[in-house]
Design a protein around this nucleic acid. Structure first.
Length: 436
RNA sequence: GGAGGGGUGGCAGAGUGGUCUAAUGCGGCGGUCUUGAAAACCGCUGUGGGCUGACGCUCACCGGGGGUUCGAAUCCCUCCCCCUCCGCCA
């Protein structure tokens, strides 16, 4: 969430930055400020009275000690009235704080100054392009045809098991998925310096609030309950991304400055309810309720946030380069950015069978927006001050769409699929053959 | 799921209604002594909020929340977490 001090001291700046998102959030600023004002007013008065009560209570203790009981009793009556007023003021302050904070949780991060102004995806500037669109001497198939012909995925039975939007990987398809996961984890762990972690796949509500998924996007998540016990509903959620648990690993901690930067990579399945989303009805793997992903997370010194973001994007690009895939990197404009992000790069891989680019990675610096929400800090050595670090997250990369780009790009005239060399040791073959 | 025991500063650990402004030890930082170091000795050593131009003043926090009281680390209620044993279980 945003820094309350920044909101107070640089109100117009905050309004202007929020306005660049084109979401109307700047309209809530004055309401937050008003609530904060009434909170502080009540608090100041309550604390004055508490100081008086504290000293009076000490006097009462002294009087009782000296056996001056009558005086003690009259003093008690006096202080009792103070207590009632204090309780009132405390309640006022607590209510104002609660309203202020619930509003604050609904206000997105401020876009970084370097982010292009824009309304939607059409305004996203292209940063760079790698490779060329694959060319074929035959008409390339799309991934649905390829997966069915090679029996990589059983779309019908996936739907039979769990409904539309769920995939059943079979045979070489299942092995390819597993090979990709291992390839990605090894790459980031061995070559890029990330510590591998394996998080829980069900997370508490506080983790979802910490990364900014909640409260605004609660309807996008799958909530779980124990059996039919509705009292347990809403405490735990299937993770929409490994960011939810992994970014929260050090929540409520104070890290030593020399521990930074912390870098984690994690595989997890990702569950998205995609409530109200378009396109789920179409067949295939582009938009599904469950997909695999390897996520990258960094906790870094604020001075290094943007340098580390550049490195993270390159780490994700390496995946596509090794797999021989054509892609482009774009910068999300102010109107297209996610809720918690200050700056985001998307990587879109070319899927020749679809004839489109597919988003396989989104790398963001959320600055201190999430670390404030989860109260994650580090102690600066020079002056012992506790500061909020920058939190970065990036996909390294999402698997289902990577799978699509891979099979569509490396399909052969005879219908088989050539396996890129770096993946061969993981899959144990250089060619996924036509199903017998 | 059942029974029991716990949760106090960076760590260990005392405190069961009123100088708790949380003892003591360890660790850490600074100093004295020393050629240097060790030892010894001395001092400092949590977090967040509010008020103030500033020096400062003040409030809250002993797992979370609520209550009793003039006053709560301490008493009561409730939730969470950890440990031991039993049951169930991959």
């Amino acid at each position: 969430m945003l820094d309350m001090k920044l909101l107070r001291d640089r109100t117009e700046f905050v309004r202007e930055r929020l306005a660049t998102r084109n979401a109307g959030d700047e309209a809530r600023v004055s309401e937050v400020l008003a609530l904060d004002e009434s909170r502080r007013a009540a608090l100041a008065e309550a604390e004055q009275l508490k100081a008086r009560r504290n000293s009076a209570s000490k006097e009462i203790g002294g009087l009782i000690g000296q056996k001056r009981l009558d005086e003690a009793e009259s003093k008690k009556a006096e202080v009792r009235a103070l207590g009632d007023r204090i309780a009132e003021l405390d309640k006022t302050a607590a209510q104002a704080e609660e309203s202020r904070d619930s509003l604050l949780l609904m206000i997105p991060n401020l876009p970084h100054a370097s982010v292009a102004l824009g309304k939607d995806a059409a305004d996203n500037p292209e940063i760079r392009v790698h490779g060329l669109k694959a060319s074929f001497e035959f008409t390339p198939c799309n991934h649905v045809e390829l997966c069915e012909r090679l029996k990589l995925i059983d779309f019908a039975r996936g739907a039979k098991l769990s409904g539309s939007g769920f995939l059943l990987y079979t045979g070489w398809g299942a092995r390819l998925e597993r090979a990709l996961i291992n390839f990605l984890l090894d790459l980031h762990q061995r070559e890029h310096g990330y510590t591998e972690v394996a998080p829980p796949y069900i997370v508490g509500e506080h983790c979802m609030i910490g990364v900014g998924q909640f409260p605004k996007f609660r309807d996008q998540a799958y909530a779980v309950q124990e059996g039919l016990d509705t009292s347990t509903m809403g405490k735990l959620y299937l993770l929409p991304t490994a960011e939810a648990p992994v970014a929260n690993i050090h929540r409520e901690e104070i890290l030593a400055e020399k521990q930074l930067p912390v870098r984690y990579c994690a595989y997890s399945p990702c569950f998205r309810a995609e409530a109200g989303a378009a396109g789920l009805g179409t067949r295939g793997m582009i938009r599904v309720h469950q997909f695999d992903k390897v996520e990258l997370i960094k906790v870094v010194h604020p001075d290094q946030g943007y340098e580390e973001l550049e490195k993270m994007v390159h780490n994700a690009e390496t995946v596509l380069q090794r797999l021989g895939l054509h892609y482009r990197v774009i910068n999300l404009c102010t109107g297209d950015m996610g809720f918690a992000a200050a700056k985001t790069y998307d990587i879109e891989v070319w899927a020749p069978g679809q004839g489109t680019y597919l988003e396989v990675s989104s790398c963001s610096n959320c600055e201190d927006y999430q670390s404030r929400r989860m109260n994650l800090r580090f102690k600066r050595e020079s002056d012992g001050l506790n500061l909020f670090p920058h939190l970065l997250n990036g996909s390294g990369t999402a698997l289902a769409r990577l799978f699509v780009a891979l099979v569509e790009t490396h399909q052969q005239a005879d219908g088989s699929i050539r396996v890129p060399e770096p993946l061969q040791p993981y899959l144990g073959t250089d060619l996924i053959p036509l199903a017998s």
